[in-house]
Simulated assay, not measured.
Amino acid sequence: MQKLTNKEEEIMKILWRLEKAFVKEILAEIKEDQPHYNTLSTIVRNLEDKKYVGHEAFGNTHRYYPLIPKEAYRKQFVNATIADFYDNSYKSLVSFFAKEEKISVAELKEIIELIEKQK
């Protein structure tokens, strides 16, 4: 699975949310730094080339839909991030969030409970 650019990820988030959409519908969902219609169309076709997106033809226009589930991409992205930045250590990842005060003791206890329930 190829890594996506930030703009491609933005488009995929829209497609995951909408499930199926024409380029003009995707364009309407972009609030900031809205690209030109043709630029967006090129990005969507690139996503199709990367096998992230498929399409249904309606005459000369296409309705696009995700081929890769959001959860599959998230798993790949998280695993790659942990490998690249935390030496494949989930402990290092959680420690980072604790040091940055992005996770509370109560949340850590909830995580421990979830892990214990799965055993």
Rank of each mutant, 00 (worst) to 15 (best):
Q2E: 11
K3L: 13
K3F: 13
L4G: 00
L4R: 03
T5S: 14
N6G: 04
K7L: 05
K7D: 00
E10Y: 06
M12I: 03
L15I: 00
L15K: 00
W16A: 05
E19F: 07
E19T: 13
E19N: 12
F22N: 04
K24Q: 12
E25H: 12
I26L: 08
I26S: 01
I26K: 02
K31Q: 14
D33H: 09
D33M: 08
D33K: 11
P35G: 10
H36Q: 13
H36I: 09
H36P: 00
Y37L: 14
Y37I: 07
Y37E: 15
T39F: 02
L40E: 08
S41M: 04
S41D: 08
S41E: 09
S41K: 15
I43K: 15
I43P: 01
N46A: 02
N46I: 01
L47Y: 03
D49V: 13
K51T: 09
K51F: 03
Y52A: 01
G54E: 07
A57W: 09
A57S: 10
F58V: 03
G59D: 08
G59A: 14
N60G: 08
R63V: 05
Y64N: 00
Y65K: 02
P66V: 03
P66T: 04
P69L: 11
K70V: 03
A72E: 15
A72T: 07
Y73S: 04
R74M: 11
F77V: 05
F77S: 10
V78M: 13
T81I: 09
D84Q: 02
F85L: 15
F85W: 11
F85P: 04
F85N: 15
N88V: 02
S89Y: 03
K91Q: 11
S92Y: 06
V94N: 01
V94H: 00
S95P: 01
F96P: 01
F97C: 13
K99N: 12
E100M: 15
K102A: 09
S104F: 10
V105H: 12
V105Y: 12
V105W: 08
V105S: 11
E107N: 12
L108D: 04
I112Y: 08
I112W: 06
E116G: 00
E116S: 04
K117L: 12
K117F: 15
Q118V: 07
